[in-house]
Design a protein around this nucleic acid. Structure first.
Lengths: 199, 199
DNA sequence: AGATATCTGTAGTGTTTACTACAAATGTGG
DNA sequence: CCACATTTGTAGTAAACACTACAGATATCT
């Protein structure tokens, strides 16, 4: 028995195109027509490969997470907690204003509030944001064990603070804030981090 | 000549209901059917009073801004820049987790990215967010003139930082962060503010 | 080569969307 | 009480939406 006609498009390349559309217009604002055009495929190919619009989003998010993990590894591998925070903030400022991508971050631009038919999309995005926060907390926990951070420091608070600041930078980037502006915010935030780790 | 049949609903009360729907589902996620049901009116009444879905959003935003201005007055009337920052952050933590409203802030939940047919909605929301930032900057400029803030302090940076943090708190509130968590973030942010105003 | 399994492109499907025509209702001014 | 101006409820409309039936194309395996 045969194995069927092979797929004529590269799924990962197509996902990169879809990612861009979701990023720019949000989940609900992105239409199947826009997605298929960007991916250079027809609707049946999209549905055969990803099942549904939401399935496509999840696949795109998986790919996004893949890239983000590689990026986070470099951040988390910094020697000290302070340097982790600095890299995290500054790399975010740069990434969110990278002209190669739409402004901001897909995990925020994708949609914070959706219609009743897409109610779980915001949850899906929130879960992926939480992942980043978890990674930071784990790293700061390790820093505490290594006596890089003091006993009185709460890793969860630090992680949440950094997560909140970068989410806020997302919002500002989406409304046109430039790289310098975001770096400025990152620099001020880093001072709070320093102050928090002293106490 | 007569003045026509009078309107049978209270426009401001109806706008409060519409605000809630936009807040909970975003601009694109909110349907006319949901809006008319929440407002307890029929579509023709909605369109006669507000022109279009986008017109309704703007009217709801005007009402939101009205309430927000009253709230900001109390914040801006604090004696010192430090107290302004403290009130701004803490009041935001409370407001964004007020059970009387959907979580987060309408100006962020409304929609950061929209479809091509609603492309100016994100701009409309961004403009209103900028207004708050402008108010803060003006207040810090005054603080500088009053020697409450030092010569080397940049009011624009301070305002942008606070704006970024509260936007980030919005994102976290929308994904379920509770009041204590937001207050914690506010407290850490306030330290950055203090540190920034010392330098 | 033949049978089989999957993909591709065309051309749709039913549903939901924002929005509205129209006639009845209800007020004001003369 | 009557002409007029505006609102209200019913019942839609055209367009856009996510999604798919189907037939032809293209590969693999025996």
């Amino acid at each position: 028995m045969g194995m069927g006609r092979p797929r004529a498009f590269d799924a990962d390349a197509a996902l990169d195109r879809a990612m861009d559309v979701f990023w720019r217009h949000g989940y609900e604002g992105a239409t199947i027509a826009q997605l298929t055009e960007a991916m250079s495929i027809n609707p049946p190919s999209l549905y055969a490969a990803f099942g549904s619009k939401e399935g496509l989003l999840k696949a795109a998010l998986d790919r996004y997470t893949e890239k983000r993990d590689a990026w986070m590894d470099k951040v988390l591998n910094a020697a000290t907690a302070h340097e982790v925070a600095e890299r995290f903030l500054m790399e975010h400022a740069d990434a969110q204003t990278d002209p190669a991508n739409p402004p901001g971050c897909l995990l925020v631009q994708g949609g914070l509030a959706c219609g009743t038919g897409s109610a779980n999309v915001p949850f899906e995005l929130a879960a992926r944001r939480t992942r980043t926060e978890d990674q930071l907390r784990e790293r700061f926990l390790r820093a505490k064990a290594e006596h890089d951070l003091g006993e009185s420091v709460d890793p969860a608070t630090l992680a949440r603070y950094l997560s909140a600041v970068t989410s806020g930078m997302c919002v500002m980037a989406s409304s046109g804030a430039n790289r310098e502006t975001l770096r400025e915010i990152a620099a001020v935030s880093l001072k709070a981090f320093e102050e928090q780790t002293k106490g």
